[in-house]
Computed example of a mutant assay.
Amino acid sequence: MTSATPAAASTSAAPGALQTLLAAMEREHATTVRVLRAFPADRLDLQPHPKSKPARDLAWLFVQEQGLVEKAITTGFDWSAPPSAPPPMPETLDEIVDAFEAAHGRVMAVVRGMSDEDLRQTVQFFVAPKTLGDIPKIDFLWFLLHDQIHHRGQFSVYLRMADARVPSIYGPTADEPWF
């Protein structure tokens, strides 16, 4: 019996930093959409603890983070001015997911057009509490992608608490066994 390893299975060169990032962003976005769509639309007010966000607010956070990404890679942040008011949160889960899909599409269009030089440029963002620092845009993109994954994990707990089916994220779940 033979087993092909990923390295042995490919004879082409490894993808570049941008291609690796784009593939991860698309893959994780699709998984996040599956998790969001699995949530029962009539349970958006679920709030597991007084310090936790209601499900609607947590779902909307995915859209807001895409807005952060878009601003960071296009105009950057103006920390000398108060932040502009966020767009109003939609009432329904479908509208929230649609807004997430649209925002992701805008971000991906910009990222696909970025050069290696663009990715090395910096954006000012928080590097510690109340401390701004310069972060290469590629690092900022990875940071926000990891934050999306973190919040998706939170949202998967909300799914279980809402007695909804938890889809496969990185492996089987009690609701989606792999074998």
Score class of each variant (00 low, 15 high):
residue 172 P to V: 02
residue 114 M to K: 03
residue 83 P to A: 13
residue 31 T to W: 06
residue 83 P to C: 04
residue 172 P to T: 03
residue 31 T to R: 15
residue 12 S to M: 14
residue 28 E to T: 12
residue 125 F to N: 09
residue 98 D to W: 03
residue 77 F to Y: 06
residue 16 G to E: 06
residue 119 L to Y: 00
residue 36 L to A: 04
residue 25 M to T: 10
residue 140 F to C: 10
residue 28 E to A: 05
residue 130 K to D: 15
residue 151 H to S: 02
residue 77 F to M: 07
residue 1 M to P: 15
residue 95 E to P: 02
residue 16 G to T: 07
residue 79 W to V: 06
residue 52 S to W: 05
residue 44 L to H: 02
residue 176 E to C: 09
residue 91 E to V: 12
residue 141 L to S: 00
residue 29 H to S: 08
residue 127 V to I: 14
residue 72 A to P: 08
residue 87 P to V: 10
residue 78 D to H: 10
residue 112 R to G: 03
residue 148 Q to M: 11
residue 67 G to F: 07
residue 33 V to Q: 03
residue 56 R to E: 01
residue 140 F to M: 12
residue 50 P to L: 06
residue 116 D to M: 03
residue 46 L to K: 01
residue 53 K to H: 13
residue 119 L to E: 09
residue 125 F to D: 13
residue 66 Q to V: 07
residue 179 F to G: 14
residue 15 P to D: 01
residue 1 M to G: 15
residue 103 A to I: 02
residue 36 L to F: 03
residue 179 F to S: 15
residue 72 A to S: 13
residue 141 L to W: 01
residue 151 H to V: 00
residue 45 D to R: 07
residue 39 F to T: 00
residue 99 A to R: 08
residue 137 K to S: 02
residue 148 Q to E: 13
residue 97 V to H: 01
residue 65 E to D: 15
residue 83 P to W: 12
residue 145 L to Q: 08
residue 11 T to N: 13
residue 12 S to Y: 12
